[in-house]
Design a binder for these strands. Structure first.
Lengths: 250, 250
DNA sequence: GAATCCAGCTTGTATAGGCAAGTTTCAGGC
DNA sequence: GCCTGAAACTTGCCTATACAAGCTGGATTC
């Protein structure tokens, strides 16, 4: 992470960050107060304040009104793994992507499906099952349910032409949600479709996508052959999001 | 995500964020300039400026000097999965944790290991293989290599008493690194140790942890029984980190 | 001794002004 | 038409000041 020291804020930021990641200031330790840093760097308090506030938002510091600034205790690391469109992923590494539609219908929600979507049972749900190929080798089975009432126009979409991922991204650019990653032994049909070996496990990513208001838009189960796909990402300390990053414990 | 409108910055932030996540302002669209928002909210420019800057750091906006402020194009979603200490994870959900040491020795690095650590071959490496139990049921095999030259005191650690994760966290609180998650069919010995079923796959997390200066500190391979463990996390748009969050493409 | 209050520290927030630096646009001169 | 340059706009950054709100510790008072 390169640190621009071109600005005064950047200088203060680099100074504090270096002490933290270098271990000189241990987690929980007191950081010099704003006025002390003002004296050290000869800047105005606002400049110091904004440098420290930025580091707080990034999870390195913890500030308590009336008390002072402290090095945040890192209790966990976070894996940041990109969940991209499988079509993008394939074309990005120079492959050829093709979609085969296995199932595509509108059904009435079963009781479990209705509970998942927090809808009354019997509500209409769009269901699609797609097989994604990379250079004519199957790479992913996408099993997806969508609430068509919340995603207008999705019923007219041709999944072979435009992916649901891209379509939903266009409709709801900033969704929330959860995902679960597991290792499974898939059923015979899946093994056959993905041309998997007799002992080969599958990596399964199941994700629930919600609109900003909390309503479930879509539930997707993505199945990959274990020998042909891995999930990878960067590791970093947790990042604060929004103006109220603390207030969880203690 | 609750939004405090108690402050003027919070009001402006909520106003802009609501337009973005609500889809009213599409990705790439122009956001009112600072002076326009000043006129609308009747605040000083700095107040508007800091509200917009915070949203930029969180990845919602993109600002170009001389041009204006725009809604950031969300190109991918990111899975934020916490990688915690198994011991913490188990005790947090009320379980009893116990560690069994399978292997614990100092060896000379093989050529592949040396390449992994970017060290000359034959350098001393600490190797440990641990079996973690939750209520006497095996949950994880931890296979770990550590560079003792970079982690002083690690050779005196008793892995059954304190986890390497916690020890390393104390030594290098803010590490960097990468992790890979895959589904595998583990060898016989692993299946036996983890008491896995005959057809049960395993979830494997392999992570490389580096010091802030880039040197590899430790490589860990964590193996879980597929039916007893899943990796889960929140999904959110990518977050900018540091003062230079863009500058990658276009 | 115990409770109270206040001074002195801390951070949070907002204001008003200024200058720098980048982009666009359009008028003017060639 | 083409190039040039200035004006007008944008964001980036810094300063100086002010007040609010929260915590701590010590002096005061009971």
């Amino acid at each position: 992470m390169r640190e621009p020291t071109s600005s005064l804020q950047g200088e203060i930021r680099a100074f504090v960050l270096e002490k933290i990641v270098g271990g000189e200031w241990a987690p929980g330790a007191r950081v010099p107060s704003e006025t002390e840093l003002v004296a050290r760097f000869g800047t105005s308090r606002m400049t110091v304040h904004h440098a420290l506030k930025a580091l707080t938002a990034e999870g390195y510091l913890r500030r308590v009104k009336g008390l002072g600034t402290f090095v945040a205790p890192p209790r966990a690391h976070v894996l940041h793994a990109r969940l991209t469109d499988v079509a993008d992923e394939i074309t990005e590494r120079g492959g050829r992507h093709r979609t085969e539609v296995l199932d595509h219908d509108v059904r009435c929600a079963s009781s479990t499906e209705a509970a998942l979507f927090q809808l009354p049972p019997g509500e209409r749900l769009l269901h699609a099952r797609l097989l994604h190929f990379e250079n004519d080798t199957p790479l992913q089975i996408e099993d997806r349910l969508i609430d068509p009432a919340r995603v207008p126009g999705v019923e007219d979409l041709d999944p072979a032409a435009e992916s649901y991922f891209a379509f939903l991204m266009g409709k709801v650019p900033y969704p929330a949600g959860r995902a679960v990653v597991r290792a499974v032994m898939p059923p015979m049909e899946t093994r056959f479709l993905l041309r998997m070996g007799p002992e080969e496990p599958a990596l399964e990513v199941e994700r629930v996508t919600r609109a900003p208001d909390g309503a479930v838009l879509t539930v997707a189960r993505l199945t990959y052959p274990g020998t042909r796909y891995v999930l990878s990402g960067e590791i970093a300390p947790p990042i604060g999001r929004g103006p109220d990053p603390v207030g969880d414990d203690e």
